[in-house]
Design a protein around this nucleic acid. Sequence first.
DNA 1: CTGAAAGCGCTTACAG
DNA 2: CTGAAAGCGCTTACAG
Lengths: 347, 347
Amino acid sequence: MKQVRIKDIASKANVSIGTVDRVLHNRGEVAKKTKERVLAIAKEMNYQPNIVAQALTTKKTYRFAVLIPRGGDDNVYWLAHPKGIEKAIRDLHPFSIEIDYRLFELHNEADFIDKTNEILTFPPDGVIMAPILKKEAIRFCEDLDQQRIPYIFIDTFIDNTNCTAFIGEDAFQGGRVAASLIDFGLATDKDILIVNLAKDLENTQHLNRRNQGFLSYFLDAGRNNGMKITVEIASTDQNAVEEKMDQILQQNPNIGAILVSSAKTHIIARYLEKKRVEAILIGYEITRKNTDYLKKGIIHFLIGQKPMEQSEKAVKRLFEYLTTHNITMKHEFQPVEIINTEVLSLS
Amino acid sequence: MKQVRIKDIASKANVSIGTVDRVLHNRGEVAKKTKERVLAIAKEMNYQPNIVAQALTTKKTYRFAVLIPRGGDDNVYWLAHPKGIEKAIRDLHPFSIEIDYRLFELHNEADFIDKTNEILTFPPDGVIMAPILKKEAIRFCEDLDQQRIPYIFIDTFIDNTNCTAFIGEDAFQGGRVAASLIDFGLATDKDILIVNLAKDLENTQHLNRRNQGFLSYFLDAGRNNGMKITVEIASTDQNAVEEKMDQILQQNPNIGAILVSSAKTHIIARYLEKKRVEAILIGYEITRKNTDYLKKGIIHFLIGQKPMEQSEKAVKRLFEYLTTHNITMKHEFQPVEIINTEVLSLS
DNA sequence: CTGAAAGCGCTTACAG
DNA sequence: CTGAAAGCGCTTACAG
């Protein structure tokens, strides 16, 4: 079981270590026959490069491009990802990784495309991306495939691409978790309101999966037998929200709990606070605006999808892939976490 | 800011690199004057060894002793720690770490002392320990100090030792989290029963902190204004538990929720199941026996202290300390997690 | 007490 | 197309 070195391969294949290296790295200039022989032997001996020696000689700095939406005070979810990336870089010390952040404006296709083009020109050793804009992302993946640059998806998954890995939330399960919390805290005869609150139907697929999970919980096992009412609010404008919510609550006086399927939970929280409506409120994402209402007791629970951990894993997987060509797990669902004020005060 | 090598120190000090190495590693055979000169220069140039080169030449395998209680089917908490350790070792690849597990029988002082002596004889490069038996642990720490072997505490902290770091649960906060969940699900006029269920008062300090946290929550903010009743059950024998619980519940018919402050929650769960008592039940630790009752809906939530993560961090910290002498964080409280059936099905 | 040389496993010019 | 040599930063005998 001891380490196989290129030296061992070389002597077995009757060539020099230089030739083995050329074969292993596909740098050409090797006779087809030799190449095949070396490859066969390497495989047979189960050669794994010593990445310590590699690091020492090349002193290579891996360059990763990170293509995600720009975070901000109103979008702390995406602000968290870079923190996870920095954590991974620390963990990977003393190997050297350089991150090239390309942050695009949410919902701005042109900006997204610009950023992808920038990435293609430097180009990086690997890409970590949130393929939120599906059409544009697929196009980009094709370009990356052509340049043989590996890429990992975070947050959102797209089928039929050659992504090295995907790391993200199991949205369906996230919905079930939200449901189980409401089920625990709500009287069984009360109604539940599901609010889909998102500008431009952003990320609808994700939100739909959450809602499916939410409803599936009650179909399977829930004690609650009140109505489940769903409402779409396409604007986050406070007035629009108020008007709509007033109307719904008036028509359904028996509502005892509200689920917001997106990170915009704080908007409904603000409404409940202003109108002094007593109801259980549960939503998604540990953003500042949300946690403020959590602390006030207006939001009862938040379901978090651990963005830091997602990005941290993405960097580690990509590095592992580049150094060893191993893929640990193609699809990895990050378990969600249940957050309330008390858990929050610890982190 | 580029890397300083021993070569740079050597030329500045007008000695050979061999001498620099001898000084840096305290291997003697160096004139006092030279030694001081080299040390001064190294410090001035802020020399940091290149651990990649180091690893390549020495092929050193770090040996860590792990002194924790033996896990088992009835003690899955301690079974989880080795998993975290293995995870850390994988993450630290290609550096080589060898773990020497010294698992002692809980509450067996003689066994604990035996194991500490075994550790002192081989001896390891560092120790990760759960200093549960305070007196014996302090004695051991003194021996380690003398041999200049660094040690990290997990699970339990002891003051006035030279431990490199501590990683564990914030038990007080864990109690608050449990309280907040009961507060969410329980009618405000119902009573709450706190069960301290532990053989031989094991780990009482930890359990006490949890209970203090639990009660502090209701003093601070809770909506519940029922009674808080505490009962000690010193035996985990099913009959003893039944008798005691029968008595308590008869005397206090208004109890709506039960908190078990230890991992023995499943014993109360079994009681509730058998007697068909309807009550909210919350406890600690994600053990198999507990999660079985979680799935049945008899335990509603478990508070987990992420044992795997604790041990994983311990290994990484110790390795970091040995290679760089940096201490990232002396005390690190692992945030607790809220677990119910739905979250569980993800992990 | 000190220095010079060899070697860890790999990559990178360079010579043929 | 292929091999031999130098070098990454460090440690380890060995010679003096």
